[in-house]
Write a protein that binds this DNA or RNA. Structure first.
Lengths: 418, 418
DNA sequence: ACAGTTTCCCGTAAATGC
DNA sequence: TGCATTTACGGGAAACTG
């Protein structure tokens, strides 16, 4: 008869970090006759398990302002703390990692009406408790896997033997992750690449994926699992690439082979944007040139990660990027976003406006650049005499420069309903 | 007869941040005859004032391992929390800012020997309590001012009417701040500039400086006080310029007029490094050129602050700096560190080795650059830079008084009540 | 020794108080 | 309202702990 809402956490509900405040709400779905006595609700966490609620956890229900006038109560500023056991008796067996341990909030109320003693009790969907934000990606994987594959309201032992997911189920959730956290989902090509990466070539939609393969085992040769890798990209997008991603200017998930196949034969200076598969949370661009022998030649820049992008926003990097060979600075080699969109047409809306010049100083700008190996073939206009030259257009663009923008992304809270 | 040591805080003892652990130690200076009973010490903070010690604050004294075998006790993991008063009755009158409120730790012990009941009590030097690290610079100003100008062990009302300091006293402390926190003190020229800045031209060593002028009043036309400005530079040095500062390659404190006087007539490309006076925690360089009409022309770059320096270390900025004019990128205009040291001779030891090339990627570098409106240039004039001057005797004294890990402060009269 | 996990705490941003 | 002060908490790093 009582219906709990989920505790909310800045971005990912169903995950609670110890020591950080959360909120939860319970609604009474039946209307009680003439309840003018106080109906007190007590919230408890994981009865006799390893966490407890630090703050005041009992509160009286009240008529809900907004809606139909049923009783509800909202607990704010709740905080979880770990119980320290004197002996090493942990609540959980230790087979599972912390982010696989499921917990739940319980809500209890008691009242008597017409001589009847009535106990109400309900509890939340399974929750994951973490102690540091670094555990959030792994915790979120658990929440996704649980809600993807079961309708049980609270099977806390779920990860003792988690079921497999079909690729079609999983790919849908992954796309939904991108659409809900970054604003645009994944298209068929991107999902195909992810399926190949996770399951090997020729993954078909009913291939099964184990929980372990999705989130626990490292990708062969890499020190991170598939989900941790994917999540690092989600984070990169959210923090540094949001508008570019939402306008579909990041192909992102393409294999290197596919990348080359796409770029081959394209006009020199055609480029596309790819997420790094070797490092967490990195994005790179690859452009094609015509080598002397007439073949296509490809160059990729070392992936930019959040620390680099904090110094210089990605669009500005694309605008200002230069290549240098033997001391000679070439023009920007990036001309057309694949397949053939002029760079500025695709990116100029993200360019940062020039910062106000602080007289009497010269503005301090940063230019992203790569140095080619001395034998490198960059056929783009080498500059005259001792002094490298930039085109007037670029000169203009450089006029405008980097600034550090803080973003306040529209967090979409996930709503999982049971 | 009991001697408390100061609580230690990462870098600045005598400042305690609420919610952050600190440590304190008390030593009993008299040897008690045959003390095999437990001598318990209780630590309290600011009796009936607005803070209290969260954690366990009673502990038994024990024979000290290291030294002469006297009794001592060390309290670890102490933590301060603010008392919330129901009514608005604050402990302090509110005339002073929080960083001017002085507090103290008290230590009490009680025992009976030969039928005599003996109370021991002592307390720490004045402490400043802050709630956020952003208050640390202001708090440290208080600690300095107190210890510079009084020998009273605990005058908690000190900032109700703080005495003035002579410039000679103050300048010495300032230099000592740089030597103890950054590794190199301030030379006579630097101090002269600071004195002029604080007191106006022609400051002589016995000019008096008020507490307000030092740390509370804003510098005319600026939104920060003299000390806050100076401390922001100390912080910049500590985080980003340590070796360059210690090798004396940063002149730093020079007025713009003096800067020009020094650079005028010097060889084109001669530059020096100056801390920004307009913005907190910024460093800029100014170089001289020869304009077409034969006059000296000066250029200064917009000051680099910690966020910029986090993206690109300062030495690398100097190494790679470029100027661009009408699309033409010039060579690095920085040639000689004033007076005439070839740039690489002065700075090459700090250059970052080029990052390991991550095959198959092109390295992603950043180049610092400024765009020049349009120009002419000119050179030169010489002057010699005086050697740093410090007065070791008094530094030593101050060091003993204020630096936390070598602290053996002068206190603290025993209060014996029986 | 080591990996998984928690704690610590700076520094920014937001909230709160006055 | 604006300023002073505190609180919140992400994120990197150190400490802890089996």
């Amino acid at each position: 008869e009582t219906q709990p809402c989920m505790p909310t956490h800045p971005q990912r509900s169903l995950i609670i970090k110890t020591g950080v405040q959360f909120t939860t709400k319970v609604r009474l779905l039946v209307k009680l006759p003439e309840v003018d006595y106080q109906l007190k609700v007590k919230t408890t966490f994981d009865k006799n398990r390893q966490f407890f609620i630090l703050t005041n956890n009992t509160k009286a229900m009240d008529v809900e302002d907004s809606s139909n006038g049923c009783l509800s109560v909202e607990f704010r500023h709740l905080q979880l703390k770990e119980k320290k056991y004197i002996n090493g008796a942990k609540g959980n067996e230790g087979l599972l990692s912390v982010t696989e341990e499921l917990h739940s909030l319980s809500f209890e109320a008691h009242f008597t009406v017409l001589g009847l003693s009535i106990d109400l009790e309900t509890s939340s969907l399974p929750l994951v408790v973490i102690s540091n934000v670094s555990q959030l990606p792994a915790g979120w994987a658990s929440v996704m896997w649980y809600n993807l594959l079961t309708d049980e309201p609270r099977n806390l032992g779920y990860f003792g033997n988690p079921p497999r997911a079909s690729w079609s189920q999983l790919s849908e959730v992954l796309s939904w992750q991108f659409s809900s956290f970054a604003g645009r989902g994944l298209n068929a090509d991107q999902l195909l690449m992810l399926g190949d990466k996770l399951l090997g070539q020729g993954a078909c939609s009913d291939r099964q994926v184990s929980w372990s393969k999705f989130s626990k085992e490292n990708i062969p040769g890499k020190p991170f699992s598939f989900w941790i890798w994917l999540e690092s990209i989600l984070e990169l997008i959210r923090k540094h690439l949001l508008p570019v991603w939402n306008d579909n200017n990041i192909m992102g998930f393409v294999s290197k082979d596919m990348e080359r196949a796409l770029l081959k034969g394209k006009e020199a200076g055609t480029f596309l944007l790819r997420f790094s598969e070797s490092h967490l949370g990195g994005i790179t661009f690859t452009w094609v040139e015509q080598a002397n022998n007439g073949e296509s030649k490809f160059n990729s820049v070392e992936p930019y990660t959040k620390s680099r992008l904090a110094a210089l926003p990605f669009a500005d990097i694309i605008r200002d990027y230069k290549v240098m060979s033997e001391g000679v600075v070439s023009q920007n080699p990036l001309k057309f976003l694949y397949p053939d969109i002029p760079k500025d047409e695709a990116f100029s809306r993200y360019y940062n406006s020039p910062q106000s010049k602080v007289h009497p100083y010269l503005p301090a700008l940063l230019i992203p650049i790569s140095e080619l190996p001395s034998n490198g073939t960059i056929p783009l206009v080498p500059c005259s005499s001792p002094e490298p030259l930039m085109s007037p257009g670029e000169f203009h663009l450089l006029h405008e420069q980097l600034c550090f923008n803080t973003m306040s992304p529209p967090y979409s809270d996930l709503t999982l309903t049971s």
